[in-house]
């Protein structure tokens, strides 16, 4: 039963994964961005479980568990703890690009990701890579786009986390048997990154009274 529907279900997860990434680009409320990120992480967990069962890969089941623990449970908690709930609840007043333009560019970036992924998919022809590699790559690029166009520190951090999710969404199909030690270390890396950046956001808030990091621009060439 599950075998028959694995591929369409994975594609379903992938589609929604992409939508959450685009949602994060265009959502102003920081808390809403974080909720979208958690949903995205859950979709990643679901896709890892699906592919893990289909390929009977214990490593992928471990990835699903680790992703759930770090991204769904630990990261929202770490962020609240490090950056403080006050920063958390902020709303971005203005963005570098208006939302329709940002969405248009996002669409172009998704097309670009398919363009980059296709030669690799056809060169190897491994199951699921035709779904997961382009969508993972799109997640990576959309996350990078989020970091560049958002002014708010927390939104930039969420952009980094979306990039990381994208890489993992691709990795569950391209390297389903990555050693668990690498998975665990990568999994530790993500909360550590969130913790360090969260603490830095708190320091910036305390020192400058703002978390609009795009306004930090005293260091430049003149």
């Amino acid at each position: 039963m599950i075998n028959l529907f694995t591929e369409p279900l994975d594609a379903f997860c992938g589609g929604f994964f992409l939508l959450t990434a685009i949602g994060i680009v265009s959502t102003r409320q920081i808390l809403a961005c974080l909720r979208l990120f958690v949903i995205q992480a859950l979709l990643l967990v679901a896709a890892a479980l699906l592919i893990g069962v289909k390929l009977s890969s214990g490593d992928l089941v471990a990835v699903a568990v680790i992703t759930f623990v770090t991204k769904v449970v630990a990261i929202p908690w770490v962020l609240k703890l490090s950056a403080g709930s006050e920063i958390y609840a902020q709303r971005e007043i203005d963005q570098v690009l208006n939302i329709p333009l940002a969405l248009l560019i996002s669409a172009a970036l998704v097309l670009f990701s398919y363009f980059v992924a296709t030669p690799m998919v056809t060169a190897v022809g491994q199951p699921f890579t035709d779904i997961n590699l382009p969508i993972g790559l799109a997640g990576l690029v959309l996350g990078a786009f989020t970091v560049t166009v958002r002014r708010e520190a927390m939104a930039q951090l969420i952009g980094l986390l979306v990039m990381e999710n994208g890489v993992f969404f691709a990795s569950i199909s391209i390297v389903p048997h990555l050693p668990v030690i690498a998975e665990i270390s990568a999994a530790i890396d993500v909360p550590v990154m969130s913790l360090i950046i969260g603490l830095l956001i708190r320091r910036i808030h305390k020192r400058t009274g703002s978390t609009v990091v795009s306004e930090l621009a005293t260091l430049r060439e003149d």
């Binding site: 970091v147 520190a153 930039q156 951090l157 980094l160 360090i196 950046i197 830095l200 320091r203 910036i204 020192r207 400058t208 990091v213 930090l216 621009a217 005293t218 260091l219």
Partner: peptide, 12 residues
């Protein structure tokens, strides 16, 4: 503020 700005750019 300058060192925090530098650290932010560096990490991100």
């Amino acid at each position: 503020p300058a060192s925090l700005e530098a650290a932010w750019k560096y990490v991100v």
